[in-house]
Simulated scan of single mutants.
Amino acid sequence: MTIYSLYIYDRHCACVYYHDWHRTRRPKPAVEGGILPAVSQAVFAPAVESNPSTLSAYGSPRNTLSSASGVVVAINEMNSQSIASPLLQAPPSPIAVSSTGLAFDEEVKLVYGVVISLRNMIKKLSGREEQFVNYRTSAYKLHLFETLSGYKFIVLSDPGSDSLRFLLRQIYVGPFLEYVVRNPLVAMDSKEYGVDNEYFRASVDRMVRGSQFFP
């Protein structure tokens, strides 16, 4: 069983977080203004990356948690634009990574649209309060966990995997509540930044890699 990618959407239908692991076909970078900053540097528009005024504390080397040592690293301000957090970079791959040919901002709209359409269809056809939790294709399986506050946690895995709703719920009740909801420095329902917290990103990465579904 393999986990491909994770998306988190807020109640404004905006993707506020993205993380991938075993994805072989990456989307193209989003167009300028297509996604919020701090969602994932791997899919930022180049114009957003190169503008120092748009960088928050999330991308600042002064607030970087080293994935190897777990130590907060302070460096000279002159190198602040040339050194980026290792967790924000696209993961290295021993093989050439192909592109889907689809910009990331279009991809997140399609993922969200599919989830909302299927959820509404199930509610209308079931005749009772039926809950949409996942669907499967020949290439992947989509898992959904939705909170009472309207946040949607979506993960894509290989089609043969079991339900991953419990893993999404663990991410919500663990790192999300700890580093995002209870963090006064993270603006909830912000329309300016994504989940701007590297401790959250590092915790999600450890949780997914430590699960039984991560080879």
Rank of each mutant, 00 (worst) to 15 (best):
His19Asn: 11
Ser53Asn: 11
Leu87Lys: 07
Ser67Leu: 10
Val73Glu: 14
Pro86Ile: 10
Arg11Ile: 01
Val72Ser: 12
Ser157Leu: 01
Pro37Ile: 01
Ile35Trp: 00
Glu77Gln: 10
Ala68Thr: 10
Ser149Ile: 07
Pro159Leu: 06
Leu87Pro: 02
Ile154Ser: 02
Leu88Met: 15
Tyr193His: 09
Pro184Tyr: 05
Val108Met: 05
Pro92Cys: 06
Asn63Met: 10
Arg119Ala: 13
Asn197Gly: 01
His19Phe: 03
Lys191Ile: 14
Pro61Met: 07
Trp21Glu: 01
Ile171Thr: 05
Tyr179Pro: 00
Ser138Thr: 07
Glu129Phe: 04
Ser60Pro: 08
Ala30Gly: 11
Gln81Gly: 15
Ile171Gly: 04
Ala90Phe: 05
Tyr151Trp: 08
Ala68Cys: 10
Tyr7Phe: 15
Ser56Asn: 08
Arg206His: 06
Ser80Glu: 15
Val173Pro: 02
Asp196Cys: 14
Tyr18Trp: 13
Ala90Tyr: 03
Asn76His: 13
Lys152Cys: 15
Thr100Glu: 11
Leu87Gly: 12
Cys13Gln: 09
Ser66Pro: 05
Gly150Ser: 06
Ala96Glu: 14
Leu88Asn: 15
Ala84Phe: 14
Asp162Lys: 13
Val108Asn: 00
Ser85Met: 05
Tyr58Ser: 06
Phe213Lys: 07
Val71Ile: 15
Arg165Met: 12
Leu144Cys: 10
Val181Ile: 11
Arg23Thr: 12
Ala84Gly: 13
Thr24Ala: 12
Met121Ile: 09
Ala139Leu: 09
Lys141Arg: 07
Ser93Tyr: 05
Tyr179Ser: 00
Arg165Ser: 11
Ala57Pro: 02
Asn120Trp: 02
Ser67Pro: 13
Ala30Lys: 01
Val133Asp: 09
Ile75His: 07
Tyr7Ala: 04
Ser126Glu: 01
Met78Tyr: 09
Val16Asp: 01
Leu148Ser: 09
Ser211Asp: 08
Ser149Pro: 04
Ile75Trp: 02
Arg201Glu: 00
Leu167Glu: 06
Tyr112Ser: 12
Ser99Asp: 10
Thr2Ser: 14
Arg209Ile: 00
Gly113Met: 07
Gly160Asp: 09
Gln170Ser: 15
Gly101Trp: 08
Glu32Pro: 03
Phe104Asn: 03
Phe176Pro: 09
Ala187Ser: 13
Cys15Arg: 05
Pro92Asp: 08
Ser190Glu: 11
Phe104Gln: 04
Asp10Val: 05
Lys109Gly: 05
Val114Ile: 10
Gly33Asn: 03
Leu148Asp: 08
Ser69Phe: 12
Pro184Gly: 04
Arg206Cys: 02
Ser211Lys: 03
Val180Lys: 00
Gly101His: 06
Glu198Val: 10
Arg62Phe: 15
Lys191Thr: 15
Pro175Met: 02
Ala103Val: 11
Val39Gln: 04
His12Arg: 09
Met78Asn: 13
Ala90Asp: 11
Arg206Ser: 08
Asn183Met: 02
Tyr58Met: 06
Lys141Gln: 11
Ser93Cys: 13
Thr147Lys: 01
Ser157Phe: 04
Leu6Asn: 07
Tyr193Pro: 00
Ser53Ile: 12
Asn63Trp: 09
Phe132His: 01
Ser53Thr: 14
Leu177Ile: 10
Tyr9Gly: 13
Val72Gln: 09
Leu110His: 13
Ala74Asp: 08
Lys123Gln: 08
